[in-house]
Amino acid sequence: MRSKGTGFRAYTIAYLIFLYAPIVLLPIFAFNNSTIIAFPLAGFTTNWFRELATIPALHHAVWNSLVIAVSTSILSTCLGVFAARASTRYDFPGKGPIIGFIMLPLVLPEIIVAVSLLVVLLGIGIELSAWTVILGHVLICTPFSIAILNSAFQSLDKSLEEAAIDLGETRWSTFRLITFPLIMPGIISSLLISFTISLDEFIIAFFLTGTQPTLPVYIWSQLRFPTKLPSIMALGTILVALSITLLIIAEYFRRRGIARSGGQDAGGFL
């Protein structure tokens, strides 16, 4: 038993190294004093980070992405609350197919979502802008929000809400006083996850963004220029650090939510 366990453990650690290898390279080259991304390293510098501050196009892209990501996370979390509530509390005709369809973007290649939205938006004459990207991002983030909020609603004991109603509250005030505070951790992690996905999403933004690129679209446009690569590495380092921070916060809230409602930890984000 023991020896078998260690074999698996060694394999799993090797696998984790494979998973993390590219990400580890990121800061190495971001601080490397050379325009060529290759070994051997040429010394330490923070120039590439400083260079980021001097590119207006980058700043516009960051701002665009932030606006899109914030809007997306709020909208998809709202839609997620409705759907998760309906799927955990109510039985209604066509429940399975309806929810299955809403979750479909999880397994649909993103390029399909992108081109089909493009066709429709151009077809009805809507100009491409940050808003069209938001439309697409809400579509793909909502299933993630639903998955997170489903577990938040599931660990919420139904009789808590009934007790509040029994004690004289209305449905709405029950939601405000009981349900909402208790699913708050789920809502926060849904906001953070949607934000992260939207910030990182490339293809839909690539197709649906108009003249104002998002951050990934901007990065994509820079990958062609070898001289820009070190500063892209620096940018990547910042992004990775940011996503990991957001994830840790999201995980913290998810666990706190489970702990608070006294439930069992049922696993990760997916």
Partner: peptide
């Protein structure tokens, strides 16, 4: 004009 004591007690945890 009724109130209920639930089987799980339904004490608001927050």
């Amino acid at each position: 004009p009724t109130n209920m004591v639930f089987q799980s007690y339904a004490i608001f945890p927050h």
